[in-house]
Simulated scan of single mutants.
Amino acid sequence: MTLTPKRAQESLIQMTELVLPNDTNVYTNLMGGRLMYWMDIAAALASMKHCAAPTVTASVDNISFENPIRLGNAVHIEAKVSRAFNSSMEVHLKVWGEDPVQQYRYKSNEAFMTFVALDPNGNPRPVPPIIAETEEEKSLYEGALRRRQLRLILGGKMKPQDAEELKALFV
């Protein structure tokens, strides 16, 4: 079955949350776990939007926090499918904090998550390919295969010697 490719931009999700006292640690910074929860929701919505099916989180790549997001600030999360494989999709996320009083925006972090589309029986199902149009989308698309191979190696699902795209970087 051949699925019609879809533009990466069509999967874009933009989500905004307000950091309230219950979302913060003792330093009044947004707790990392709460941010990861919101990121997971945004990425799930982007993946479902792309494949028009329920999806589940398969993996979360490294999440590094560049800047804390403070109590009372807004959190802006942008999620978009960067590449689709057979039944899985890599979703790229960007996160910014925004101080609404001082009116400035700052980068908090960036991450990749992988989602798998499910059929009505809960089994993996095929997803449409992605069409990367912008320079950023093309760059993310090209790097996705290497990131996927690294995830598979770390998850014990691929032998390092079989990761041709990754080996090409070092040979």
Rank of each mutant, 00 (worst) to 15 (best):
V19Q: 12
M48G: 07
F65A: 08
L71P: 05
I41E: 05
I41K: 00
L45G: 04
A8Q: 08
W38R: 04
G33W: 07
H50Q: 04
L71Q: 07
G72A: 08
S11L: 03
M15E: 07
M48K: 10
Q14C: 09
A44D: 01
C51K: 05
L20R: 13
G32F: 09
T55A: 10
P54N: 12
L18P: 09
M15A: 10
M39H: 03
S11K: 01
V19S: 11
Q14F: 02
Q9C: 12
S11P: 00
T55F: 04
A44P: 02
I63N: 07
K49H: 03
W38H: 02
L18C: 11
M31E: 13
S64H: 12
I41Y: 00
N22Y: 13
E66Q: 13
M36W: 05
A42C: 02
K49Q: 06
K49D: 02
N67C: 09
L45N: 01
V26N: 15
L35H: 01
A52K: 11
D61S: 13
E10L: 10
L20M: 15
A74G: 12
G72C: 07
E66A: 15
A58C: 10
N22H: 15
A58V: 10
W38V: 01
I13W: 02
N29M: 06
P21N: 12
M15C: 08
K49E: 02
D61E: 14
N29H: 13
I69Q: 05
S47M: 03
E17H: 02
E66L: 15
